[in-house]
Design a protein around this nucleic acid. Structure first.
Lengths: 238, 238
DNA sequence: CGACGCCTTGACCCCAGTCAAGTGTGGTGG
DNA sequence: CCACCACACTTGACTGGGGTCAAGGCGTCG
């Protein structure tokens, strides 16, 4: 079940990033079936998956959640009119697919390759941690998406990614511009233009399309509207 | 602790809807302290609170969560630069304040009056239900906020509120235009204009500022980009 | 090599932000 | 009882940011 809507939306959606993913998913279906015991994790099943692999589809029955071992996962929601809202990106150690009953969004691998661990519900301590993790991620997303200007959104997006990937200056951006656009509520063109703008202003560098180096963290923070933690930009009246 | 940021932001924020709330909160502080045993709920403490009452502040230590018994609660996050992002509205039966460690947002009563129930963490079945409830609400918010046009956002906002309040046609809108604007990432003027537009087009009626009647649910759904559930707007190619 | 996807850049225009003024409405004090 | 004010909301005029349409670069695959 659950897939017919995806097909409909694919037909209607001009960009249709999931269509390719869907085809790849079909091809790699059985590949997904057998879990790869890569590094002999303790009793849990870890899967290898290539870019474009769909982990689960919107409206599929939800039985397990997943943890990202390596790579990046993108979860997205397809509207009936074909528009797409990317609900989040998941990096190493983060959890996705925490829905109850049916998955409300689809999950897709956006990095070249990814390892994900299936986790069953039942251990209440673990379950609660997972839910809290998911909640935190989504709440963070709201603070990103609610911003006014494209510049502020992109800046906040980069700042968020930097803190989550734990990288000092280099940020991997395996997702496509369309993914970022659908996440931040912008268009591909605006995303591209804004990146170019940040590069021109020497706030970031971009040796490859999918790799960003943060040059001026402070000014990026300022654009993101977070201020420098050590030097709050607000002076209260006497 | 936690309140100094609020004060700072108050000084900087032109609209500063929390400033009034803050003053009211001070005045009604002791009122809040003693829980009112209104209808003798089973062993849980229910409080009455008037409009503007702040339940908790951003960065306050988080020990309990809350359930709305009656009225409407608004949770919002204040940025260092004074901007405000409303993270959600909570109606009867919904849960807020599910943060761990410290509250990441402030919670305020926006209806004329509200009853809220304090709930301690510990009952894992209950805890998990609460977390799932919160997660669902926040994920829904993302689908609202990510929309492109103001018309689409307002329409989706109304459709969402209608389904959550369980009301057939009449929707209570106790929150201010500023709250709605800060929720959807718009300005008060745009919110006001959009409501007027919907009224002119006879999609809704608005006998009072804080009450909306949905006249044409189908067209509202269409604007919201959800289509009519019985008649999907997408035709798949053969 | 050409076809295709993805990304970038440019030109144009419209939606929504900004500034400013006007309209209730409730509260306070004379 | 009315004058006055404070506040929330509405409406208008103007402008700029970003959506839209279109063209062009660039790497990958067949």
């Amino acid at each position: 079940m659950g897939s017919f809507r995806l097909e409909d939306a694919r037909a209607a959606n001009r960009a249709a990033p999931l269509s390719k993913a869907r085809r790849k998913a079909d091809a790699a279906a059985d590949y997904l079936q057998n879990s790869m015991a890569c590094k002999a994790e303790i009793g849990s099943s870890i899967r290898n998956a290539a870019k474009g692999t769909v982990i689960y589809c919107q409206d599929d029955p939800a039985s397990v959640r997943y943890e990202v071992v390596s790579g990046v996962i993108c979860t997205s929601y397809l509207f009936a009119d074909g528009r797409r809202q990317v609900t989040g990106f998941c990096f190493k150690g983060e959890v996705f697919g925490t829905d109850h009953g049916f998955y409300k969004s689809s999950a897709e691998v956006v990095s070249e390759t990814a390892q994900i661990r299936r986790i069953r519900w039942g251990d209440s301590a673990d379950d609660e941690r997972a839910l809290n993790n998911a909640l935190e991620l989504v709440e963070n997303s709201i603070l990103l998406i609610g911003r006014r200007t494209a510049l502020s959104r992109i800046a906040a997006f980069l700042v968020d990614l930097r803190s989550r990937t734990g990288n000092a200056h280099w940020i991997p951006l395996p997702m496509s511009r369309a993914d970022i656009a659908d996440y931040l509520g912008l268009t591909v063109e605006t995303v591209s233009r804004t990146f170019s703008q940040l590069i021109r202003k020497r706030l970031i560098a971009q040796p490859k399309h999918h790799l960003v180096r943060i040059i001026d963290q402070d000014r990026l923070n300022a654009l993101a509207g977070m201020g420098s933690d050590t030097n709050p930009p607000i002076t209260s009246e006497p």
